[in-house]
Design a protein around this nucleic acid. Sequence first.
DNA 1: AATATATTTTAGATTTGTCTAAATATTAAT
DNA 2: ATTAATATTTAGACAAATCTAAAATATATT
Lengths: 218, 218
Amino acid sequence: MTHTVTEENYIKAIYHLQHIHDKVSTTLLSDEIKTRPASVTDMLKKLRTKRIVNYQRYKGFTLTDIGNKTALTIIRKHRLWEYFLVNKLGFDWDKVHNVAEELEHITSSELIIRLDNYLGFPSFDPHGDPIPDSKGKIKILKQSNIMTLPIKKMVTVSSVKNQSPEMLELLNHFRIGIGTKLKVTKRFEFDGSVEIKIDKQTATIVSKLVAQNVYCIV
Amino acid sequence: MTHTVTEENYIKAIYHLQHIHDKVSTTLLSDEIKTRPASVTDMLKKLRTKRIVNYQRYKGFTLTDIGNKTALTIIRKHRLWEYFLVNKLGFDWDKVHNVAEELEHITSSELIIRLDNYLGFPSFDPHGDPIPDSKGKIKILKQSNIMTLPIKKMVTVSSVKNQSPEMLELLNHFRIGIGTKLKVTKRFEFDGSVEIKIDKQTATIVSKLVAQNVYCIV
DNA sequence: AATATATTTTAGATTTGTCTAAATATTAAT
DNA sequence: ATTAATATTTAGACAAATCTAAAATATATT
């Protein structure tokens, strides 16, 4: 079964929303995709006939097993391309999302097999997000965000939740990236900000918002 | 100025036809693109308003300077991707066209600059076709096809004119590729076929049609 | 439970790129 | 130089994905 680029973008968006909200609504999806709710309804009907979503009018919708599998292959492609862009072409990790957004829709499956092999079968993309393998299987790490970390324990940054360009720019400025080692040295009750030492050296203070979004392996 | 994928395909097709026919007609283009002449007429009007073609109804059309430049950047992308697919991902040279056909429409110009750099600024793609540089400049080689080669002169295969999968499959079978060294040992008047020695070893006979399509540097 | 508010869906229109069939212009042939 | 054949364009329709405005349904409030 093949899908248009638009269909793939809907599938990916539904998958994404299902993992951050326990209920996905037409409005929520329309907001994510930047279309009108009426357009979402039209697309849901189309995806229903393709057996990608379970959908009944006024009763909400979820991805079917097929839909989930499809989403995972799109995400796999996206993250492999991100890995390629950063580790082979030397892009900054905060500049690759939009390009990968286009590359993920290239249809050749041989291309992805070869790309995966060329990259050495990576398990995580440059933002620390897991790359599904060819069967759609994902490696899950036990991670904690900086807010919940014990004091003075050395940890390794493993992923970033909010991946807006603004957030990534900020982290770049702090020299925080995937793999960076750091420890929490102090917490400030007043505003929730946290003092951290990066690579045992410079002490910096990051806001609560940043601390909540940066995840580490303990 | 940005273009849709469809527009880009038209631009590329016009460019291509202009280089193999001295006059390009609506029908010829419709045949190349596999659409109806009526659709071509519609698109020509659209491309005219975008200043990509000079077009007057019933009087034919040509690419403008802008159109030519646009075509060259698309071709540049196509051929860089072909180079990548063959030389980095290990695709066979006869299997890359369709994938490159998709990749050429990825819009990021930074991507192409970085890809070019990553590949070492190649001047020719895996079929021996020149890759326009970032300014659209093309390196031209003096080449002759096997039909016009002097007897017993050692030459190097530099490009293949007809790049249909069938032709490329045939050349693969003969172990003829870009860079292969060969010499003509005999010509047969009867059907125009030619005996060649590849890499000084095996003598093979190729048909007139093959001989006409394989170009070499003398 | 009745009403107000918010959400979702339908109906009908729009844009892009395509099509068919008919009309018009060009080229070739007698 | 007409006529015949061929090529091109117009007119009108269609599918995909979107939109607006109105209708239908669900949820929240009193």
